[in-house]
Design a protein around this nucleic acid. Structure first.
Lengths: 125, 125
DNA sequence: CTAAGTGCAAATCATTTGCAACCAG
DNA sequence: CTGGTTGCAAATGATTTGCACTTAG
């Protein structure tokens, strides 16, 4: 069913390139244009939606008012600079057994979590 | 400088009433109308902004695409039901010394964090 | 031919702001 | 009178959708 889609390919390539983990749709759109290719914002939106539904990428909710995406797969948490907005990711998850504790305490069955630290990055402090 | 403001009072009362910790502006607006009083959405917005600046309430970013607020003060984390959207809060913070670890690992100076667990609430599971 | 992918414009949704009327001090 | 508060309408910002055109399978 899937036909060649250069927009989807470009989006996937950008996100898989790995250096960033806080891609907004606008960032992706700009990235594609910067590489010489063309793509409409709405096409990027649809590509992102599609990739998300396929489980290739996932949303990252930073305090920021736009939706951001990163490669899905290995779970990790983030640190965000309050001053410049820079985001870094942490190598491993700091909540090894916290979920079990939450389950006991609340009665919820916990399937995951989202953790963002805030502070100042080395450059801004 | 501050004159009586029934909108601000209503918003504060609702949020201080304590049962919820995921008030959106729309929720607050609806809540005020439900109590028989009137208030414009924009006035509620301004009241919320004012209370936030005063440090009375703070934002809570749940996956949800709208900004939510809760009483500021004691820090605690949340669990959100993926099915019905219900939110509960956890009594204490589960990351006592995690911030120090993050500082060492990333070079950021960490000032806080935001943690949301996701799963299914007792009613939905 | 048929359905997927794309661009363009327009519709939504939620948040914010401008402005004039209003009112307590 | 003066400045804070409010309602109403309109501006923003970002996400989402409708539609027609193009093209791979």
């Amino acid at each position: 069913m899937a036909r060649p889609s250069h927009v989807r390919n470009s989006v996937r390539e950008l996100i898989e390139s790995g250096d960033r983990h806080d891609w907004s749709i606008e960032d992706l759109h700009a990235g594609i244009l910067a590489s010489g290719l063309t793509a409409d914002y709405s096409s990027v939106f649809r590509a992102v939606t599609w990739l998300e539904r396929q489980g290739v990428i996932g949303q990252v909710a930073l305090g920021d008012s736009r939706i951001r995406y990163e490669l899905a797969g290995h779970h990790h948490d983030h640190v965000r600079c309050d001053a410049c907005g820079a985001v870094s990711s942490l190598p491993d998850c700091l909540l090894p057994r916290a979920e079990a504790r939450v389950e006991k305490g609340t009665g919820f069955s916990v399937t995951g979590h989202h953790l963002v630290f805030s502070g100042l990055c080395p450059a801004c402090r």
